[in-house]
Structure formats: structure tokens, C-alpha cells
Design a protein around this nucleic acid. Sequence first.
DNA 1: GTTATGACGGCAT
DNA 2: TATGCCGCCATAA
Length: 110
Amino acid sequence: MRGSVEQVYALVRRIPAGKVMSYGQVAAWCAPLTARQVGRILAGALEDDLPWWRVVGSDGRLRIHKRDPMLAQLQRAYLQQEGVIFTADGRVQMTPEQVADPATFEVEFS
DNA sequence: GTTATGACGGCAT
DNA sequence: TATGCCGCCATAA
């Protein structure tokens, strides 16, 4: 399980609406995965039942923009609809209020 | 085989 | 604030 794609899915699915996590955070939790790998995994999970829009760059930027600006627009729409606050320069405000912490999810492994 | 490039991130300039 | 570099690693050229 550790370091598997399934673990990333399981974790991302547990991110509460209205909160976000950075690629690095997800990777750290799913060690030994790296942030880059998480990005790759999510890239192939667009069609899966997964709240991919709740994963952003560590600086709050929507890095999917590089792959498809339209998806970034969609991601922003989803997040704002969930109540996520954006800064004036179009980034997610990375305050502890909006950044989810896996340790509080009461994670269960199987 | 080697290089470049990605839904990355941290540190040094 | 803004680049640049390096580590990371799968993929494409």
C-alpha cells in the first residue's frame, strides 16, 4: 500500500471539501512517492472518481494550468464553489484554515 | 544511450 | 519578487 497509486487515491479522496493539499504533502504522506510522481498520477486520474481539484502547488498555484488552462479554470471554479479563498493574484490562500492535514483524517489502513 | 520535459518543491542567488 | 539549480522519475524524441 505504501507508495502505491491506490494510497494517493485514498488520501486525495479524504481531503474535505473547502480544503486543499499540496502535491508535496500528498507525496510525503505516500512516501516514498515524490511530488512529481503525484502530479503524474493525478494526470491520469482525471476520469476517475477523484477530487483532483483539491491538490494544488505548495505555493497555492494551480499547476494544472501548464497542461491545460481550461482545466485550471475548472479547478478554480470547483474550489471557489466549495468556499476556498483565493488571493488577489489568483492563488489559493495556503493558510492552515484551508490546507488539510492528513493527521486529522483519522486515517485507516487495510 | 542521452536529452528534454512534465499537474513539483526547496534552497540559493 | 524573480530566476536558476538540483533532486526526483516516468516518458517521449
